[in-house]
Design a protein around this nucleic acid. Sequence first.
DNA 1: GATGCCCGTCCCACTGAGTGGGAGGATCCC
DNA 2: GGGATCCTCCCACTCAGTGGGACGGGCATC
Lengths: 246, 246
Amino acid sequence: MRSALTGEPVSVLDRILAILDTVRESHGSTTITQLALATGIPKSTVSRLVGDLVRQRYLARTEHGVVIGLRLFELGARASTPRRLSVAALPVLAELFNATGEHLNVAVQEGQDMISVISVRGRLRPAPSRAGVRVPSATTALGKAVLAFTEDEAVLRDVLTGFEPDRRHSFERELATVRAEAVAIDRCETFPGVVGVASPVLSPERLPVAAISVAGPESDMDANRMMPLVRHAALVLTHRLALQTA
Amino acid sequence: MRSALTGEPVSVLDRILAILDTVRESHGSTTITQLALATGIPKSTVSRLVGDLVRQRYLARTEHGVVIGLRLFELGARASTPRRLSVAALPVLAELFNATGEHLNVAVQEGQDMISVISVRGRLRPAPSRAGVRVPSATTALGKAVLAFTEDEAVLRDVLTGFEPDRRHSFERELATVRAEAVAIDRCETFPGVVGVASPVLSPERLPVAAISVAGPESDMDANRMMPLVRHAALVLTHRLALQTA
DNA sequence: GATGCCCGTCCCACTGAGTGGGAGGATCCC
DNA sequence: GGGATCCTCCCACTCAGTGGGACGGGCATC
């Protein structure tokens, strides 16, 4: 098949996952033709695969096109890491919310991004993130909190690649500060007008498993007041996770 | 292959979905061998498919076995129906929670079960349901609220099948009452000691798209007080959904 | 109502992707 | 060392999956 382009998905599994991811990325909904174009899979094949996935309720058809179905929602709700974190984090988040009233997130590393696992709405409108959303590691407080403690050289290298030498050094210095203080800050780097303060959650082996963050409006959130609160929340969560495993 | 047993999954897609579903059902975690037994797929094939799914982060390996991975969480969080319902339902649930303080659920029909799409914790411990959980249609207030208004004969027949004639008639009479009052009740049928009160959420075509429920301890929850509150919440949600579409 | 365009689905001969029995390695317990 | 249980890898075979193209329906535009 398609002898011309290499790197195209050839296995059925790759194709299915490519379709699912493309549907996810198309916020709203997509059509068969758009999926065929985006994935490089012939239209007739996309039609058949989507038909099967719809029959199994992994996808659904609306009048506007193809969307994520209920079965994937069901599967996602059972995902291991988010569940474990939720159980441990909810009381911690409740306390942190009482103390701050701001938008809270717990996120984990996934490739070069962070994925928000739990999200609590504060006064920010619109909310900059929701559970299940990807945010870049390089600019968010969440990402920097995790990167500062990671021992995975590959991820760090990938993030640094693309930075100019200047930026690169200042970023490495910033991570050193984060390591020392156990708090990372995002001053409107990711979302204009939004300041984030995050602290890492570590495994018993001192490796970063997640990060917890507070985000509020640049104009009237006191980052200095947030820092000890977030650091404390992350420490408590680290401790609760260690107990949970045992 | 496997000429003996028909109905076994033969297509790659069916096999992948069978594996994913089996992993989901195995609360906690499964091994390759258990998956092979449960799905009827040869072990070497399961090993290869699971390996691919892990590489793509749709599944993950822990020290205890195979679990649902982050990519499925990400996909699930983008599912269309839950998202639309969440946006419309959150203010309604906030009001209902203030009025009751009990465990709340919004659920949609999926086959012969209901799937909880949003869950708000009340004072019940442990919580009888969470978002993403399946509960049977035939006994829960949520299920009966939807069944009373469904026009899908097939689903109704499937649910009725297996009931003895007596039970069948009383169930049909119960549904008629639900239709008249727009409220269904589950008096400890599904969970011992737990009473549920639910009301249907309808589409502009008057077809059931979801149901909203309050659940509390049999001992000291006043179902009669709940009924108008739940009915009102469902009506408001029905209205908000109609506006959302327009 | 004829023409053109863009949908999505279906058909079916061809073929290479997927298969799975069996070998092999790792780990654990007796 | 022997046995049990786990998972992964190999590779010749073959049938499941493929995709070009035909088809039918929806919708403007002329």
